[in-house]
Design a binder for these strands. Structure first.
Lengths: 353, 353
DNA sequence: CTGAAAGCGCTTACAG
DNA sequence: CTGAAAGCGCTTACAG
């Protein structure tokens, strides 16, 4: 099917393409009548400007690429939505490129987005290698949404993050305040800068407060219900002393709930549980997970703003880092215990399935 | 920043742009050495073809537009993910345009996608007006994912849907089989072809089986936890006779669970509950919602396939409709009751919050 | 096997 | 106020 072009309109109106172009871009130097006539013609014929051609000249597409780690994670899905909302509010369109987690294809996605000539890209990642990726494509304005290592050269990039170190500290302080002294950090992932900070904040503060922390490592590539489930079953398999679990993400926490359910461990009566993220479903009546909330809308807004500022300014020789503070959302999965007397050792009863 | 172009490469290699173009598109008529040399140059300089220019000539962008109703709904988010997966497998990129539900801006999104010269669009919608929208832009290959009215002229469009009528029937039969005779259909939305079919299947079959159905209408624009919550509270406010609730969506069902929790109504002991969709969270240990599952991956694959076939064929004068069958997923929110004796009337105790 | 030329649909100096 | 011309980065007949 042949779309109507500026040339067609010009022919119909009996003017040059230049004039049509001017009418379309409301240039000042054009008579009101010709403009009116041309605009009417466009209306009637259903003319739509070819953005491809326009972008070829302006070398601006007004689209930004967004690379989420895994859109099946509700946190990332919600986040992508907000990004699109804020981008649209500033007249930018989003091209979503979900790389499967760990596919190592992010580099290809970058190449692709460059070929599409997007004006910039937003890389959502908690991987500690994300920084290198961005540097490899330094010619393209880009911001990392997530954490990056602060040591060495990796730090010189534009990024906005939620302060995960503080988030970890908050969790430790909260559990301590409830009387918990032996706790587990469940779902630590190596290679994740986010987890590194979250874990450091948590365990450093816990130690300061005289708590004992056992860390359960998630060997996988992402924090899922399944990973939390696996680790929790591993924990519940033997008698354990800890009275509280701080899960690295809400999804993982949900997995812990599943395992606890199977093993007949009551939450919060026998075990307190905290998550991280505050995904929608953490608020569900039968979940009511106490968690550390990431300010998703603000995060999205700040990310879009930083990226678009970058695109507009073309400022080299500087970079900015923006931090947002998490908040604690108290619900029903944590309970206060008397810190004085030691907890009785639990002998969980496991239903083997 | 100035990207390296085909002209730059040509100059460096001492050949014409034509030759470079041929090397890049592995045309047959080119000497192996020149090709090798050119390819190496591209590698070294980080050359990326400008897809804008290429598309301008070929009038093909290899991107499809996807318009989901509301990506914050996990069902649609998951679906969008699968679409992107299958599209990518066939070398198409997805441009995601989430219109806020009910914004009436879908028309604008269409215009925008046409301007971007996408090769086709996938409209996910349960609105009965979706068909008209597609017809208004008939020049663009497009498929409706969802239901459309079958009467009149509205039916002549390409669509793939889950058979919602059957889904409704299945729910009615299941509840009947468990002994329920008085049931409520909660969350019916007027103006939704999907709901119309689902409701028709359910109530027709229920009537055939001698059941009584009360329908609670959701006046809003989308099925959310909140809408389910509102309607359920409305139901629980007064004594009611029904022993089972069939919610129009899993999200709505989650809202019903919240309300039941608040009102001290035990599920499934005092009230059976079914959902529709089988979103991830329906499987959660503390949810375990019995529901009708939509085959999301198959739906996504069929949609992408139909659209790409359409794009490739440019076939006019025909349209195809594809139907996928839902399945029943039995979990823990429904229980069998003795059909013989009438249920005792419930006096729910409401906690006012 | 290689290149000069035309053209995809638009914008933008430049000259009237 | 209007138009002819050049050009954005590429591809594709056409001629060598």
């Amino acid at each position: 099917m042949q779309r109507v072009t500026i040339k067609d309109i010009a022919k119909m109106a009996g003017v040059s393409v230049t004039t049509v172009s001017r009418a379309l871009n409301d240039a000042p130097e054009i008579s009101p009548e010709t403009r009116k006539c041309i605009l009417r013609l466009c209306q009637e014929t259903g003319y739509r400007a070819n953005l491809l051609a326009r972008s070829l000249i302006s070398s601006r597409t007004n689209v930004i690429g967004v690379i989420p780690p895994d859109i099946s994670n509700p946190f990332h899905a919600a986040f992508s939505l907000y990004i699109e909302m804020y981008a649209k509010a500033r007249d930018y369109q989003v091209m979503l490129c979900s790389g499967r987690p760990g596919d190592g294809r992010i580099d290809e996605l970058f190449d692709f987005l460059i070929s599409q000539r997007v004006d910039g890209v937003l890389l959502l990642s908690s991987s500690s290698s994300a920084g290198d990726l961005l540097k490899a494509h330094a010619a393209l304005p880009s911001v990392l949404v997530g954490d990056c290592v602060t040591e060495g050269t990796g730090s010189q990039l534009n990024a906005v993050s939620v302060d995960n170190c503080i988030g970890g500290r908050m969790a430790a302080e909260y559990l301590h305040q409830l009387g918990h002294r032996q706790v587990v950090y469940l779902g630590f992932r190596a290679g994740s800068a986010t987890h590194a900070l979250r874990h450091r904040g948590f365990s450093l503060r816990a130690e300061e407060l005289g708590m004992q922390v056992e860390t359960l490592v998630n060997p996988g590539r992402s924090s899922t219900i399944e990973s939390g489930h696996q680790l929790a079953r591993q924990l519940f398999q033997k008698p354990f002393q800890q009275t509280a679990v701080f899960a690295a993400s809400d999804s993982a926490a949900l997995g812990v709930m599943a395992a606890a359910d199977e093993c007949g461990i009551a939450i919060p009566e026998e075990l307190s549980l905290m998550g991280y993220d505050n995904i929608d479903y953490a608020a569900l009546p039968n979940i009511r997970l106490t968690t550390i909330a990431q300010p998703i809308p603000q995060l999205a807004r700040a990310s879009v703003k930083l990226l678009l500022d970058l695109i507009d300014s073309e400022s080299a020789g500087e970079y900015t880092r923006k931090f947002l503070l998490p908040t604690l959302v108290e619900r029903r999965t944590c309970r206060a215990i008397s810190a004085g007397r030691p907890m009785q050792q639990k002998i969980p009863h496991i239903n083997h399935i």
